[in-house]
Amino acid sequence: MPDAAETPDPADAFDPADAFDPAEVPLPERFAWTSSGPLLSPHPDEAHDIVSIKDPTVIRHNDEWQVYATVANTDGEWSLAHTSFADWSGADEAEQYFLDTNPAIGGRYAAAPQVFYFEPQDLWYMVFQTGPPAYSTTTDPSRPETWTEPRLFFEEEPPIVTENKGEGGWLDFWTICDATDCYLFFSDGNGHMYRSQTTVAEFPEGFDDTAIVLEDADRFRLFEASNVYRLGDSGGYLMIVEALAVESDWRRYFRAWTSDSLDGEWTPLADSEAEPFARSHNVSFADGQPAWTQDFSHGELLRDGVDQMLTVNPCDLTYLYQGLDPAAEGEYSQLPWRLGLLTLDNPVC
């Protein structure tokens, strides 16, 4: 049985019998965070001249944090890496395994992983982009060499994506399930968030009914890197999407919405530059250290468990994100992304 993260039971913090009301969401109206310093940096070797580690997914399994992430090399090629460690204090000393050495994955383009345990099949899934959304499976996510050859969720791009993506492309795929259905959320880099749906019984086959669930006239305000989570036992869900601060400094930050169901409408929670989910002006740095980043970009909340429900404890939110030296510049693939942790300072529980 997979391990769960050692966090308080969210059912202790609020009554699960209460109906979910977005106006009474078990989250603060305004968010305040404290960031660690950089905890994970790229570890190049003779065969992998990588310059960044980014887009992390994280689970607690075998009494260790298992982190999968995107890495980019000096030629601008993207692939995946894995590392594991018992405590965050030892994260950067842990060995990193590059998944291009897994024969089933190989040297193909791969990026933006998400790992979860699909309980109905007693199987672990890694969802990631290879262009189209793909998945691999394993019985043990602590052994990255065991992931299977990737398979695609779709035979072709859904027409609604083709019609709306403009010069963008579908990316940053995210899977979450409720008791009966599984949903695949993703972006197009052109101001649209999409959702496709299948049943738990059919998963990973059968994704259909692709629909736009959020859109913005400015594509940079609804850009990429979406996460969706179940908020404890509240009956509600949280969606986080990365944006660029088009009204000011163009730094990356997160907006957030809530919904009472995965196929429902999304209500703004913290969706502006002035009142964001996470941005430079609502993040302080631990022990008074200087801000090592002004960008808060693609990551994942530490989950209260590991299964396909993607439950988080709203009373104890911690977010693993990618940050960047504010002085860094140049081609995107060559930016020196590092990973750090945000901890919520003002939970309402």
Rank of each mutant, 00 (worst) to 15 (best):
A274D: 15
W88N: 02
G90D: 13
I240P: 01
Q121L: 13
R338T: 15
A104W: 02
V67N: 06
L152D: 00
A328W: 14
A327I: 06
T258I: 04
T101H: 07
L335A: 13
F153C: 01
D325A: 14
A217Y: 06
G191N: 03
E157C: 10
W170R: 09
R303N: 07
L320R: 08
G232S: 05
V241L: 14
P56A: 03
L344G: 04
G340Y: 06
P347W: 14
T343C: 10
T267Q: 05
E163D: 15
M1E: 10
G37I: 01
N62M: 14
F31A: 07
G106A: 10
R60E: 12
R60H: 14
C182N: 06
T139P: 10
S280K: 13
T138S: 13
S52V: 00
W124Q: 07
T74N: 10
R221E: 13
D15E: 04
A327C: 05
Q129C: 12
N190S: 03
F128I: 11
A104C: 00
S297Q: 12
L99R: 08
G264E: 00
G169F: 09
R338Y: 09
P204L: 15
V71N: 01
W147Q: 05
N227K: 10
A256I: 00
G206H: 05
S272F: 06
P336G: 11
D18N: 12
V306P: 00
E24R: 08
S261P: 08
S261M: 07
E46V: 02
F173R: 06
L335K: 15
F116Q: 13
F128Q: 12
D18K: 14
E64N: 14
P141A: 01
A94M: 01
G264P: 04
P8R: 08
S272I: 06
L214M: 00
S196L: 02
F118E: 10
L324P: 09
E205N: 12
E119I: 07
D49C: 03
S136D: 05
V115R: 09
A225P: 01
S41E: 13
A256P: 01
Q308F: 06
A110V: 12
G107S: 14
D63M: 08
M1W: 03
S284P: 01
H48W: 05
L222A: 07
Q289N: 07
F223G: 05
V228F: 13
S259V: 03
R143S: 15
Y237Q: 01
W174H: 14
D263G: 15
W250G: 03
G106W: 04
A32M: 09
R303G: 06
G264H: 00
L171A: 06
F85H: 01
G37L: 04
L317C: 08
R108N: 07
